[in-house]
Amino acid sequence: MLVYALKRLLWMLPVMLGVLIIVFTITYFTPGDPIAAMLGPGYTPERYAQKAAELGLDQGYFIRLGKYIWNAFVRFDLGRSYLSNLSISDEIAARFPITLCIGVLTIFVMAVVGMPLGIFSAIRQYGAADAALTVAALVMNAIPAFVFALLSLILFGVVLRWLPVNGLGSWKAWILPVVTSALPGIAVVMRMSRTTMLEVIRQDYIRTARSKGLKEGVIIRKHALKNCLIPLITVTGGFMTSVLAGSIIVETIFGIPGLGMYLMGGIIGRDYPVINGSVLLISLIVCILNLVVDLLYAMIDPRIKAQYSAKKGKIKKSGGTLPPVNEGGAA
């Protein structure tokens, strides 16, 4: 397992390198003159040349790419923002925890609300509650997050004044962003857990569990739920990616000083180093999340764990983790 995880981590390096080269190349060839944008009207040609040299923008593509890779991979330095001239690594380090915090809370809310509802819905299949939840999931999925965000802002922030509309001043301020970004996820998780649960509770081993005289609750918790987790983890892990991407909108609307807002500022200001750095970080997170999801599979499903372990090599296997199959009966 550990070897497998390490291997996967190593594999991330070429992936990140690829992402970096693609992102760098795209921004390199994007039309637009960052220096002109930076200096604004009214600069002298000398200042232009000076600025270009200062930022290393007067060098060729390969030199710049090489420098960028060296700085990013070896020194963890993503350069400086064209607009604010601040270190991007520092800026991201200051902002990312907030985005991550909201992301983790979102996933948490998603799982904690979505799964029980989905399971409830599955157990009461075709009941009134199931129908109501199905409609609710449809609505949650159909309305874009930002519409929800704005509507809830108006309702809770302006009309009722229960919650602040901006910033992260108090714990209350976290409610709307987290709920808004979790809503579509809740819908997905709910539908997914309903479907999976319906499938799982029809499995033979659930019938076996029933014929053992176990309580229904135990059957759902111990036998069914764990078997539902794999597809749910896939969905949830995948959703973390869209939560990160969606942070651009949510953070902008709710005024949350996170990575999303930083990236948004970079996009609006054509601040390419900021865009590069943020995209690089987001893709790193996506890579890590994929790994985590895969490792979670193994933790839940021994069959997958066996597959991973098998990849370690044959020596370990014959060393006795799997004892020889004993077919001979005692009879």
Binding site: L150, E251, I253, F254, G255, P257, M261
Partner: peptide
């Protein structure tokens, strides 16, 4: 106080 989305500023 900074508002990335101006509409929330008007709400405040």
């Amino acid at each position: 106080k900074y508002y990335p989305d101006a509409s929330t500023m008007y709400m405040d």
